[in-house]
Design a protein around this nucleic acid. Structure first.
Length: 214
DNA sequence: ATCCCGAGGG
DNA sequence: CCCTCTGGAT
């Protein structure tokens, strides 16, 4: 049976339709950029690691004390885990984050001369750093084109049927990167996050995602 | 597939 | 009360 009379609920957008949705989201946030607070790449790495399943606002609330107590990878690597936990206990998942922060700092000291590596393979070796975190650090710290698929990017991509409902993060990343020129990856990524955070959050009532587009 | 896990908002 | 937040390790 041919499905000519309107799209089935499961039917995905064409490339052009998907690009149009992304273009409109992008246009809604011309000044979109990362909202984590950091002063150097070590702080950036720590902040992004801590942002897992946690709002940027909460991360920004704990980082001043954390970076004051442990201003360098050396200091952080030598800190007792309990001291790190004391600084970040307001965050979710804080036990594992504190452990990862210490181990990550130790690897920076041991293998990278206390510097944050600027390539994906080395970033992925760091404890607590996976694909999403590595992409954010590369994009924010080095301007390397990347689309990090977080909860917002995944939800928006699925609501607009740019990807299937069961798409995994890596598949979403590749789909979005295929749709857009590299020069637009970083900005569109930020625009999608702000759109998801402030305009069409997970609790959004209207089932029609186009109702939230300008 | 499951665990981790506090704060904020509805 | 319940759901969500720029995930990663096991």
């Amino acid at each position: 049976m041919a499905k000519k009379a309107g799209k089935a609920d499961t039917e995905l957008l064409s490339d052009d339709e998907a690009r149009e949705v992304l273009r409109r989201i992008d246009a809604m946030y011309p000044d979109a950029k990362g909202e984590l607070h950091w002063e150097n790449k070590f702080q950036l790495l720590c902040a992004v690691l801590m942002s897992a399943q946690t709002t940027d606002k909460m991360v920004n609330r704990v980082t001043p004390r954390l970076f004051s107590d442990f201003p360098s990878p050396e200091k952080l690597a030598q800190a007792p885990v309990t001291a790190i936990e004391a600084d970040i206990s307001q965050l979710g998942l804080y036990h594992s984050k504190a452990k990862h922060l210490k181990e990550m700092a130790q690897m920076l000291v041991d293998d990278y001369g206390g510097e944050v590596p600027g390539n994906k393979a080395d970033l992925l070796r760091l404890p607590g750093v996976g694909n999403k975190t590595a992409n954010v650090v590369l994009a924010e710290g080095w301007g390397v084109p990347a689309i990090a698929v977080d909860t917002h990017v995944a939800r928006i991509s699925k609501k607009f049927k740019i990807v299937p409902e069961d798409a995994k993060p890596l598949a979403i990343e590749h789909r979005l990167e295929d749709l857009l020129p590299e020069e637009e990856w970083i900005h569109t990524h930020h625009a999608m996050i702000l759109f998801g955070r402030y305009t069409m959050p997970a609790r959004a009532k209207n089932p029609d995602p186009y109702a939230y587009l300008k």
